[in-house]
């Protein structure tokens, strides 16, 4: 890692490249073969039917870790005085339950577990950001793996995967609670309303345009908010890590900066996980609510 411009750019690019597995397109030297991408261009050439192995591995691993840890507490949960880990899990569960009760007005057995999963899982994925940026990629390099992006939430595929799933749930509950007619009515008869039938009919396309944008904006903003925050945070860590390649004084200053940014980042990763969860609850609440 040297501070020279072109290697700096390479270093940053290297850290922001996923380990992508897919089929090399025609015209490539490995055309038709399946394999790991060696560069961003390779990954782009794979098209849709390829997979970011590092994102999937870390995201599944962290999700399994979360479920395993919480399942342990759930299995031994009793009404007697709770032990240390059970106490913590109960604290988290009660916090989530309070949030859901506060924001979700209906009755739905799915919302609270969904919120818990989102909060803890997103938090754990964000938490990977606090590991020094070079540790795991270096280890991967030693093991012969070229690229490794350890923070799944800096991969838009991951954040969109979450938000689109939430979006599907929003659509499902909108139709389930309001019926197809109610949902279509909500999209076309608001916010502009008129007593005159003709004017009302004229309003339908305008309303539909506005409401569609509102609807589509939900999953897009949900995932981009998380992705943007985590990507920027990761980028700053990478930039700080670049300073270690400079002089002794610059390196020491970089260490100080990294410490400061990491402490600040603890707040951001928790906050982003919380925002993602709260907005999911709110969207589902809006979907389940009858207007008028």
């Amino acid at each position: 890692m040297s501070a020279a411009p072109e290697t700096s750019a390479l270093y940053i690019k290297h850290h922001l490249t996923n380990l992508t597995f897919g089929q090399f397109p025609a015209g490539h030297e490995h055309a038709g073969h399946w394999g790991f991408a060696h560069s961003v261009q390779d990954a782009a050439g794979f098209g849709f039917w390829s997979i970011n192995v590092d994102s999937m591995l870390f995201s599944i691993g962290l999700g399994v870790l979360f479920l395993w840890l919480f399942r342990m507490a759930a299995k031994t949960a009793t009404a007697d005085a709770p032990g240390g880990w059970q106490n913590f899990v109960e604290w988290v569960v009660e916090f989530i339950d309070d949030s859901v009760r506060g924001s979700f007005s209906g009755k739905n057995a799915l919302v609270a577990p969904l919120a818990l999963t989102i909060f803890i899982w997103v938090f754990l994925m964000n938490f990977m950001d606090l590991l020094p940026v070079d540790w795991l990629p270096w280890l991967a390099g030693v093991l012969g793996v070229g690229h490794l992006k350890v923070v799944p939430s800096t991969d838009p595929n991951i954040t969109f995967g979450l938000s689109l799933s939430v979006f599907v749930l929003v659509l499902y509950y909108s139709v389930k609670m309001k019926g197809v007619g109610g949902f279509v009515g909500e999209l076309t008869l608001m916010p502009f309303q008129a007593k005159n039938k003709v004017v009302q009919t004229l309003f339908i396309p305008i309303n539909f345009l506005l409401e569609s944008v509102t609807l589509i904006a939900k999953p897009v903003s949900l995932s981009l908010r998380l992705f943007g925050n985590m990507y920027a945070g990761e980028m700053i860590f990478i930039l700080i890590a670049l300073m270690y390649g400079g002089s002794m004084a610059l390196g020491a200053f970089g260490g100080l900066l990294q410490l400061g940014w990491a402490i600040f980042h603890i707040l951001i990763i928790t906050l982003q996980a919380f925002i993602f969860m709260t907005l999911t609850i709110v969207y589902l609440d809006m979907a389940s609510q009858e207007h008028h």
């Binding site: 039917w49 390829s50 997979i51 994102s55 999937m56 979360f66 899982w121 991951i158 995967g161 799933s165």
Partner: peptide, 19 residues
């Protein structure tokens, strides 16, 4: 780059929520 990770993540998410 959007790729099949999107689908993988969605399936994983739903399975985790179900669990």
């Amino acid at each position: 780059n959007f790729n099949a990770t999107l689908i993988g993540q969605s399936i994983t998410f739903l399975v985790f929520v179900w669990f």
